[in-house]
Design a binder for these strands. Structure first.
Lengths: 185, 185
DNA sequence: CCTTTTGGCTATGAGCATTAGCCTAGCCCC
DNA sequence: GGGGCTAGGCTAATGCTCATAGCCAAAAGG
């Protein structure tokens, strides 16, 4: 019996592939085991539990988001940066609905997710810093932005909007609404 | 062995009480059975499956929301109505976070939920009708409103905002942002 | 009063996460 | 090259979940 050469990272990879293919509900240790060519209990050599696998997946997804956003935002500022960030967020949720759904809404509660959550939050704060928002005002604005992008992306990723043809228009309207609420220079 | 005198409605009641008490994850047929004083398989005399119980619960929650909103909105119109609706939505999510989480994001996909979903949607449309929005514009505005209230309520109900002290301010800011985006008379 | 339907029950099975305990492949060190 | 240790696989077993089958009595209704 040759070894499969598995690792924690490979298990997370397989789990992410799995939910991309078959949805978040299909995330089961048995399914991950099958995909990695291993018996289910063997996964425990690399992952403490299903819950821990979920948090490891969430860390990966949030890091992926942070990287993607920072790449999209390079060289941009102001309204352009805000719109780019919002579009990138939506884009990711549409391309990977299961990954979006796999992100916990309260990352800062779990110490294992806090770092990745803080890094992601920092991207939002950085984009809004250009508007002279500081302290409490920055927090409120970030929360508003987060609520908007999360709400829209969650509903769209779940297929919750009835007519799919002009969702772009709705999203652009949402972007305009938020941008208009920011203090002008 | 005397009969428990159960009914479908009573099972749904017990299930709603259960998630209010112990969270959505605690929703299990065994737990509902215990709460109704019956063996688990007996529930199948009143409910087809756990999935069907979930949709029945969702219908009840959405109807509850519709009733609550229409009651809060009587005699109001314009910005006042919009703000009232948004506050009522948030209030419900905070008071019953599990019920809020139990609502599917895509009610119109399930025929059993379509009626309740449409009635709830109609409340949103009615509030925006006062602004002269019609056809496509009304749809976009409703989607924006829905994304905002759903996003904020979901994050707050899940405990996703870090500092809880001035969430009211954030929410009022969100209300103002949306109201400002509506066409003035 | 007898019959039928209805609403309980126990027993059972499939699938899940998880634990325990074994066994060997592959590496380190002599 | 050989000895042993560790790490990574395995099977077996436990206890939870939803769900089905089949029995049996309570209530309803003629």
């Amino acid at each position: 019996m040759p070894r499969a050469g598995l690792s924690t990272s490979a298990v997370v990879d397989a789990a992410l592939d799995l939910i991309d293919d078959r949805g978040l509900d299909a995330l089961t240790l048995a399914a991950v085991a099958e995909r990695t060519g291993v018996a289910a209990p063997s996964l425990y050599k690399h992952v403490g539990s299903l819950a821990q696998l979920r948090t490891l997946m969430a860390v990966r997804i949030m890091d992926e988001l942070t990287e993607r956003f920072t790449a999209a935002l390079v060289g941009r500022s102001g309204d352009d940066a805000v719109a780019t960030l919002m579009r990138a967020y939506r884009r990711h949720a549409v391309e990977h609905p299961a990954r979006h759904a796999a992100m916990p809404p309260d990352p800062l509660h779990d110490p294992a997710l806090a770092r990745a959550g803080a890094r992601l939050l920092e991207v939002f704060l950085a984009v809004l810093r250009g508007y002279g928002l500081e302290g409490e005002a920055a927090i409120h604005a970030t929360r508003c932005l987060r609520a908007i992008v999360h709400g829209f992306a969650s509903i769209e990723a779940a297929g919750g909007f009835g007519l799919p043809e002009d969702l772009d228009t709705t999203h652009e309207q949402l972007i305009h609404m938020f941008v208009a609420s920011l203090p002008r220079t």
